[in-house]
Design a protein around this nucleic acid. Structure first.
Lengths: 190, 190, 190, 190
DNA sequence: AATGAATGAGAGTTCATTCAT
DNA sequence: AATGAATGAACTCTCATTCAT
């Protein structure tokens, strides 16, 4: 097993607990126990519960954004890129349906500065996607759509998978592909 | 003004407070004060904070689902119906961006039974929409799409508006219309 | 027994505990227990430990100053007035030698405002005493002494009794009288 | 500069911190940092916070008593000796008004044994002063006063300077001299 | 000998809930 | 039925002390 330092162990345990319990329900004692350290130890690494949450969010979001950006940058048509991104997103959160509680919730407890950082990160990501869509229009791969709305729809559409219940005879992967196909091909008869 | 009974006053006040503060941050004292009743009185009508939250969620969700269903049932093309539903949804939550905190968050605190009820309500709604889409395919208004995925995408796509930042020269209403148009017409060149 | 309201019971218990333990050592649990109420109840009456301490100090000091002023205002020579004041002071603190901890110590924990109030109260008292001394000089009862220093010496000299150890065959009352006599008659041969 | 050993550096730092913060507020980490050593190092020299405080008090008191005794032993009338002692006392504490917090406060935290030692030291000092006063009476320099009370009054009167506020056109030195003069000459008209 | 990472007992404070009025 | 005073469990955070290095 890879040797992890205490800080990483606490971050990881905190992520799990925040996910399972939400910010308020989570207790420092619980996080410490899950990390296999004493309660006081958490305060050696993070000055407060809020600061710990802040770092958890930052590291988690950083990881997520990076992964998605990589998926976008690989070869293929734009629809393929987006599909790849959706599937990567799915893989990351398949085991953690509660991840929405970290990403959508509890955001009032992080410092203004981090809130702004999150928005900035997300905006940057949306802009990158917008650029890709504009290129797609230029080379005639896409119709002349409203790229800002499209980039936002695609980005926030990622979160839809949080709500897919396990259903009968189709895998979630297939549903995701169908969803992306719909975004690109539309529903109207032509 | 219609005389409201105490129970309704408490439910209404609780909704506002839960929206503003989230479940954990909300206090029974705050809810009671906002409702203009004594703290003990809340316990005459609801046996616990959780039970109150449960009822608030049920009533709120009920109202929402009903409103959206009405929007769907009115005349027009399917795209028009969906657009109407999106705009109705927008109207309801325009003033309460924190509504996502009630709908997406804090759901761990309601009893299993209500969780299942919520899912059932939502499934029922998705089914109704699915039926509408199937009719649309039958009469040739829509392409032969995967109706379950489409119904889910449309339903969960409603939540995207929570994340629209106030942007420059376009109103949110226009962005919503663009978003619906994209769902129906697709992004790919044809 | 006189029926005391809860606030008074808490103030009284807090006084005892603060005297015995000092501000930092005193615990809200201990104060609550001593007052015969629940821990949370103290917070119904005082928003914090500091606020409770503040009120204890104000009420205690108020009582003390009033009692001493009364002793000064009764009939007699100036030496008799001062002696009476010293003895009254002695009576009040005879059972509470730790009172110095409340009056001299722990003053960093009370709000600036109360600190200023205490100084103002004390200054006012010293001024009153200074006036009495000046009258004494005018009517030839006292030598033309430095009245400000004298008033301060007498006032702060009150605190000396905190340090009298129980000694052999003389009572503290007698020692106090001797001390006052010395202040008025001096030590030098004439 | 004389090389100080670690123990002395810790004692000195601890004195400063105890003076500034009081016993409870002072932290071992703060003391260690001020002394320029590691936190664990303090425990190499002193087994506990209480033990450290104990040693600080003993050494500080020792120094004080010695200084005052020296002032008393130099040449002059008794009034001059006492005045010299008061001024020496003033010099020592002029910069540290918080010294009263060490001397008057926090004494509950030192072991019984040291408490008794302090009382004994003080008693011894009072006795020495009492002897001086008795000699003064014998040679007719002083009136036949109650020497024990006088010695106590003089000794405890030292603490009065803690309470002198900075005042207008007189220096504290002048006030101290006035105070001593009053003790020796009395206030009553003769 | 010197260190500081690790710890957990214990502090102040909040608040859902109870219950006498 | 309506109330709010009373309560204590449970929380975050501090810091004296230990101990492996």
């Amino acid at each position: 097993m890879i040797k992890q330092n205490k800080r990483d162990k606490i971050i990881e345990a905190a992520l799990q607990i925040f996910l399972k319990e939400g910010y308020e329900r989570a207790t420092m004692q619980g996080i410490a126990s899950a990390a296999g350290v004493g309660k006081g130890t958490t305060y050696e690494y993070f000055p407060s519960k809020e600061a710990l949450f802040n770092d958890v969010v930052r590291e988690g979001f950083d990881y997520l954004i990076t992964e998605l950006a990589v998926a976008l940058e690989q070869e293929g048509t734009i629809q393929e890129k987006v599909e790849r991104m959706y599937l990567r997103h799915l893989t990351i959160f398949q085991t953690e349906t509660q991840f929405r509680d970290l990403m959508l919730n509890d955001m009032g407890k992080i410092p203004e500065e981090t809130q702004l950082w999150l928005i900035a990160q997300q905006s940057e990501f949306v802009l990158k996607l917008k650029g890709i869509l504009e290129d797609g229009i230029k080379i005639g791969e896409l119709r002349p759509i409203h790229t800002r709305v499209a980039a936002n729809t695609i980005t926030h559409g990622l979160k839809m998978i949080y709500y897919y219940q396990g259903e009968e005879h189709e895998s979630i992967e297939e549903l995701v592909k169908e969803q992306v196909a719909m975004l690109f091909n539309g529903m109207n008869q032509i």
